[in-house]
């Protein structure tokens, strides 16, 4: 919300994207592949893969993407809301061959929709192991997952970090959707042009007015 408000039309958009997924599904390699264009390489420059940024230029508009990795272990599950507060997008990663990791994704989708409503753009990403070949079994499962994703207003992708397949498209698509959401929000805000203050402050201004008016009335009469 704060990031969306900071991005005025024609200016730079800043988006926060959280990365959710179980510990072992390979979130790290996905995001490293995208931001550093490296996979399992010795040339990785960063010490960490938990906070990464990427600058993009989409249809002439600058976009700053901040990707927040989240702790995916079960014991850290309760901390989710602290991480995805004020985020514009979420990437939910699961392993195509691991049914449990997909169950986790379902839980997260429910949680995110409950906490952040429809303002957040969701991407469900199935990680494909490079050794795995597409057989009918997996294709069937993908069809099922795609229909689930549609039903919750998310988009489904399947990628392989090793082959750099589908990662670029995934992030580009997500950015476009986040821009659309931000623009729609701006239009909504644009109706009350005088209310340039952020929504947090806005509520309190309303509080103030009824308090002030009776004071003025009292004075003029006395």
């Amino acid at each position: 919300m704060a990031a969306g408000g900071a991005a005025n039309s024609g200016k730079t958009y800043s988006f926060k994207v959280v990365l959710l997924g179980e510990g072992c599904v390979g979130k790290t390699s996905l995001v490293l592949r995208y931001c550093e264009n490296k996979f399992n390489d010795k040339h990785i420059t960063t010490l960490q893969a938990s906070f990464l940024t990427k600058k993009l230029n989409i249809t002439g508009k600058r976009v700053n993407l901040a990707i927040w990795d989240t702790a995916g272990q079960e014991r850290f599950h309760a901390l989710g809301p602290i991480y995805y507060r004020d985020s514009n997008g979420a990437i939910l990663v699961y392993d195509i061959t691991d049914e449990d990791s997909f169950q986790k994704v379902k839980n997260w989708v429910k949680e995110l929709r409950k906490m952040l409503g429809n303002e957040i753009c969701l991407c469900i990403v199935g990680k494909l192991s490079e050794r795995l070949h597409m057989d009918t079994n997996i294709s069937l499962r993908l069809v099922f997952v795609c229909s689930y994703a549609e039903s919750v207003g998310a988009k489904h992708y399947h990628t392989s970090a090793k082959l750099n397949k589908g990662i670029e498209e995934l992030f580009l698509d997500l950015c476009k959707r986040m821009m659309e959401t931000a623009q729609a929000e701006e239009r909504l805000k644009g109706n009350g042009a005088s209310q340039s203050a952020s929504s947090r402050r806005g509520v309190q201004i309303v509080d103030d007015e009824p308090q002030a008016t009776p004071a003025g009335g009292c004075c003029s009469s006395g």
Partner: peptide
């Protein structure tokens, strides 16, 4: 946090992920 990442890099060759960092 930077010091934590440095310490983690000593025991792990891969870039630290959020799980390692948070613990």
């Amino acid at each position: 946090s930077q010091h934590v990442f440095e310490a983690l890099s000593r025991s792990n060759s891969e870039p630290a992920n959020a799980d390692d960092f948070l613990s």
